[in-house]
Design a protein around this nucleic acid. Structure first.
Lengths: 327, 327
DNA sequence: ATCAATGTTGTGAGCGCTAACAATTGCATC
DNA sequence: GATGCAATTGTTAGCGCTCACAACATTGAT
């Protein structure tokens, strides 16, 4: 920085002022300094800067299942938005979610001195572990996490589930089962609720609830049972991967989709349009979710305001796994 | 730190020594200092530390298509290994790959003062953009990138493709086509070569090469054409997603798999076992790839040695889309 | 008892930057 | 031309840490 100052014929402080866009710098000086900067290829030292400002310009992303469709796309959005705002993004993916691993990762972030953390861990217990840390660093959660204090951006999962079930209802289905995610996942719980609500409102008692684990394998296993049983006329599956397994099981046992049973998924991964048959599902925009989260976090960091949590609306995508009820 | 020193009754320098595991600290003093540290909940300030050491303990990950199966799992491995070694991981995902976006992201990393960068951008041009930066910061690439100087860990894609084609050959297939990835992707090119090699060695001229774009949609589109044509007895598809589209197209036009045509994919995503029918494919361990990369990079950073690039072997997974040739 | 060699601890400087304050300049006004 | 005020620039200190070196114990050999 001293070098730049010398070349531009000013003091190091003026260089600093130019770098930080201070108002009181004459335009000629500013130009001269900027010229010197590009000339020397000068880059300001982040470490020194954060030593004195006490901000690292870094945002931590704490997540689990980071390689899955949802989380990885959320990360994409978070990362893009953060970088555009001049922040660095530090990632800690949890291999397994326990209070200990969460604390470890948070300690890692505190060591780094992150300015804020985005949490993408859709398990309920998470909040309890996090709440004592909240005081130390601004936290924003993707999806509800059990406490609206932390809430960042969420997709209205419940509404998404309703959309799916109401579509089935409109087609005349009555016996609509639900293959859910693990019930200790917040998103899974919300989708179960949506399914229940829609059925109850239609005057149908929600009976067939099967708890799955998100995996295609589990979808296959449960699909086999459902196919053997044949009591359902439609099935709402909590994600596209399980739906894939279900479709496979039905195919194997000669249960035709959608003639014998209708199926609706959740997520709308790009592949879902190429399932056999193409899957009717509920789309949610994970990237936008991530971007909104960063928006909220930056608001909090830079202006101190606690903005209102953003909600991203899910969208029903009708393809070929749903048809009018046959009975 | 001064506080810790006071509580332990030593100088700040001794505290620093304990923190850095210097040999010449008596065990009583060390204990006393450690006690003071936990007592006060002291965490050393990373910014101050990197200001003087000129190392940020941060590794940058530059990647494209970060939400895809391969890259996201590689990131998982990289991130895990780096964190275990006490490094922070900063991510920059490229939305589109151009010299400009690559330079931008690298500038971002240089600003941050990363100690090293892992590159996961499987497009050839990448190397040319990167080579002038190599001097400034250690670089390691996942997959070959056009220059073994940068090579980190690679899966032997060519070998994987051979495995696939040889399997088909053993089943008696002769007319084996290849639906490849975009030919300007390094991995796609390697798989094309493997396909070519295996056929040539078997005395068969490799004729039917169709260039795809990795997407299920493209697999579907091309699958439709291949089904209409019916000149192929087997098809090697460069990834599982395209294979999904192909399967769907064949199903739609009544081409039976594997009776009428055999199909082999590449990647072995967890879903592939639940395609209709379950996909024979080539598995590669992306997480290990990432871990190996970090291993190599840390060697270079900490001991200055340039280790030999690691190679991860792909593995053929035979499921139900391949059967003996019928003719 | 003396000395050197070793192990252990303390002292001072400075990494590159920004915040607070001090000093200078330009300009309109009397 | 002198005065005051704002706009612009320079000066100093210090963020929290590690490095190089100085100082002090401790030990064993002479």
């Amino acid at each position: 920085m001293e070098d730049v100052a010398r070349v531009a014929g000013v003091s190091h402080q003026t260089v600093s002022r130019v770098l930080n866009n201070h108002p009181n710098v004459s335009s000629k000086t500013r130009e001269r300094v900027e010229k010197a900067i590009t000339e020397l290829g000068y880059r300001r030292n982040t470490a020194a800067r954060s030593l004195v400002t006490r901000r690292s310009q870094t945002i931590g992303v704490l997540g689990s299942e980071m390689a899955q469709y949802g989380p990885s796309h959320t990360l994409l959005g978070v990362q893009q938005a953060a970088r555009e705002a001049g922040y660095f993004v530090s990632v800690a993916g949890l291999r397994e979610v326990t209070p200990e691993t969460i604390r470890d990762a948070m300690a890692h972030f505190m060591d780094q001195g992150v300015d804020g953390v985005v949490v993408t861990v859709p398990h309920p217990g998470t909040f309890d572990v996090l709440k004592d840390i909240t005081a130390q660093v601004p936290l924003v959660a993707v999806g509800s996490i059990g406490d609206e204090h932390l809430a960042g951006a969420t997709v209205d999962q419940r509404q998404g589930a309703r959309l799916a079930v109401e579509h089935l209802l409109e087609l005349g289905h009555q016996r609509i089962g639900h293959l859910s995610g693990p019930s200790d996942w917040i998103d899974a719980a919300a989708r179960i609720e949506g399914w229940r609500d829609a059925l109850t409102e239609a005057g149908i008692e929600p009976v067939t609830l099967i708890e799955g684990d998100w995996s295609a394998e589990c979808g296959y296993r449960e699909g086999l049972k459902i196919a053997a049983d044949r009591s359902l006329s439609a099935l709402f599956v909590a994600n596209d991967q399980m739906a894939l397994g279900v479709l496979r099981a039905f195919n194997e046992l000669g249960v035709r989709v959608p003639e014998d049973i209708s199926v609706v998924g959740f997520d709308d991964q790009p592949e879902s349009a190429y399932f056999i048959p193409p899957l009717t599902t509920v789309a949610q925009d994970f990237e936008e979710l991530g971007q909104r989260c960063i928006g909220l976090l930056l608001d909090r960091l830079e202006s101190g305001t606690t903005g209102t949590p953003a909600t991203v609306e899910p969208r029903l995508v009708v393809r070929s796994t749903t048809a009018p009820a046959s009975n």
